[in-house]
Amino acid sequence: MKAPYTCLWYENQALDAAEFYCSLFEHSKNLGGNGFMALFELNGQKYMAMNGGPSYQLSPAVSLVVECETQKEIDHYWEKLSEGGEEGRCGWLVDRFGLSWQVIPSVLGQLMSDPDRAAGVQAAFMKMKKLDIETLLNS
Rank of each mutant, 00 (worst) to 15 (best):
I104R: 14
L31Y: 04
G91Y: 02
C22Q: 01
D132H: 03
Q45R: 07
T6L: 13
A17M: 05
S63A: 10
G32Y: 00
G98A: 05
A3F: 04
D16F: 07
K29N: 10
R89K: 12
K2T: 10
Y77K: 13
A124N: 10
G91M: 04
L58D: 07
H76I: 10
G85T: 13
E79W: 05
E73L: 07
L93M: 11
A18F: 02
L137W: 05
A17Y: 00
A38Y: 00
W9V: 12
Q110T: 15
G52K: 11
S63L: 05
P60L: 11
E73I: 01
H76A: 09
M1E: 08
M48R: 04
F40V: 00
Q57P: 01
A3M: 15
W9N: 06
R117E: 09
F97D: 00
F20T: 10
E41S: 08
V65Y: 07
F40I: 01
Y21L: 08
S139Q: 00
C68A: 10
D16L: 12
E87H: 13
G85F: 05
Q71C: 06
Y77E: 03
L99G: 08
E67W: 14
G32K: 01
D75M: 06
S63E: 03
L99W: 07
E86F: 14
M126L: 15
L64C: 01
N138F: 01
S82D: 05
V66N: 04
S63K: 06
S82N: 07
M112L: 09
G53N: 03
I74K: 00
Q13R: 15
M1Y: 10
S59F: 13
G53I: 11
A18R: 06
P105V: 09
T70C: 05
P54S: 11
L31Q: 12
S82E: 04
E41F: 00
I74S: 10
G85V: 14
N138A: 13
K129H: 13
N34K: 06
C68S: 07
R89L: 12
Y47G: 02
M128R: 08
G85I: 13
G85D: 09
E87Q: 12
D75H: 07
G53S: 03
L58F: 08
K129I: 00
K80S: 09
D132T: 11
E11K: 09
G120I: 06
G98N: 09
K129P: 11
K72C: 14
P54K: 13
E11Y: 03
Q71W: 11
R89P: 06
G35R: 14
K130L: 14
M50Y: 11
Y5F: 15
E73T: 02
C90D: 04
D132Y: 02
L42P: 00
Q45I: 03
L24N: 10
G98H: 06
F40R: 01
